[in-house]
């Protein structure tokens, strides 16, 4: 039995119960998940912080595995996708940050937060920004520290559809976890911010896709609209969440006061990435 340790969103998760029959799955998880994967434990001294959550894989007598009580798929690709999904839920669930559904990328001049619901192109924009030289903080969540106006990086594997991969000029992978979207190692696209390095955001981006032949524009945005967008995309507020919506509103108001708010309109992810690059130096 071995374990893998992950860090992201200011939380730590140990994945335990990886027996030899899951070696292929572990290799795939290592391949695409190394942005959030911690190095192998070196002795496990007393200084080592305990994980916030443990995700267990259990093997049943008939040889099948369960993760989070769900059957682990038999094929390594699909099993790795399930494992990464469970780690994703565990990290965000354990995080004490205020998590906002957003793409976050960083440059020399700070970091940009682009909030948005699923399907609005956040991940593809983040991927294009990486190809443009910006560093990935997260394609999924801006994890706002409870007290300081900084973000905890969460550079998990990027879920890219075939269409997104085509737009980004990525080759079809020969192997790797598959889901409805294929998990893609951030290292294939560029650099990530280490998960132990806090990031100071400088820009809140209200991004909007436009049909071609429009290329792109950046205009001043409304601070109030920015706050509304952040609040509408909170991931861990309300029932069972660590933040009430009102607490989140107050915390995000503090954050948004420290940011410049821009409205970014773009047609292709490459156009959007270039504009983000100009905003972040």
């Amino acid at each position: 039995m071995s374990s893998l340790r992950f860090r992201g969103a200011g939380a730590r998760v140990n994945l335990v119960g990886l027996d030899r029959s899951l070696a292929d799955v572990v290799d795939l998880v290592r391949d695409v998940g190394h942005g959030i994967l911690l190095p192998e434990q070196s002795g496990g001294g007393a200084h080592e912080r305990a994980p916030d959550t443990v995700v267990r894989i259990r093997q049943l007598p008939d040889g099948v595995h369960l993760i989070d009580g769900e059957l682990l798929p038999a094929t390594p690709d699909e099993a790795a996708a399930s494992v990464l999904g469970a780690v994703d839920r565990a990290l965000l669930g354990a995080s004490r940050c205020l998590s906002v559904h957003a793409a976050v990328v960083a440059g020399a001049g700070g970091a940009a937060i682009a909030p948005g619901v699923s399907g609005t192109g956040k991940t593809t924009l983040a991927a294009a920004a990486m190809q443009h030289g910006l560093r990935l903080v997260s394609d999924e969540a801006a994890c706002v520290d409870p007290h300081d106006d900084v973000l905890h990086p969460y550079p998990r594997p990027l879920g890219l559809s075939r269409r997104s991969r085509d737009l980004l000029g990525l080759p079809t992978p020969l192997s790797g976890p598959v889901d409805e979207e294929r998990a893609t190692a951030p290292s294939l696209l560029g650099r990530t911010v280490p998960t132990d390095q806090l990031v100071r955001p400088t820009v809140l981006v209200l991004a909007q896709r436009e049909p071609a032949p429009f290329t792109g524009s950046v205009t001043e945005g409304s601070t109030g609209e920015g706050l509304s967008a952040l609040l509408a995309n909170c991931l861990n507020t309300g029932l069972g969440g660590p933040w009430t919506p009102e607490e989140a509103w107050a915390r995000l108001a503090e954050l948004v006061r420290s940011l410049s708010v821009v409205r970014l309109r773009y047609s292709t992810p490459k156009d959007g990435a270039e504009l983000l690059g100009s905003l972040l130096g």
């Binding site: 109030g224 706050l227 609040l231 919506p245 009102e246 509103w249």
Partner: peptide
């Protein structure tokens, strides 16, 4: 509704809906 000034703008938070509305 609770209100909070953001420069010249105002953000209104409605605890009944959990949403915020921005006013210029």
């Amino acid at each position: 509704v609770r209100e909070m000034a953001l420069g010249d703008e105002l953000s209104l938070f409605d605890s009944a809906t959990g949403r915020a509305v921005a006013l210029n």
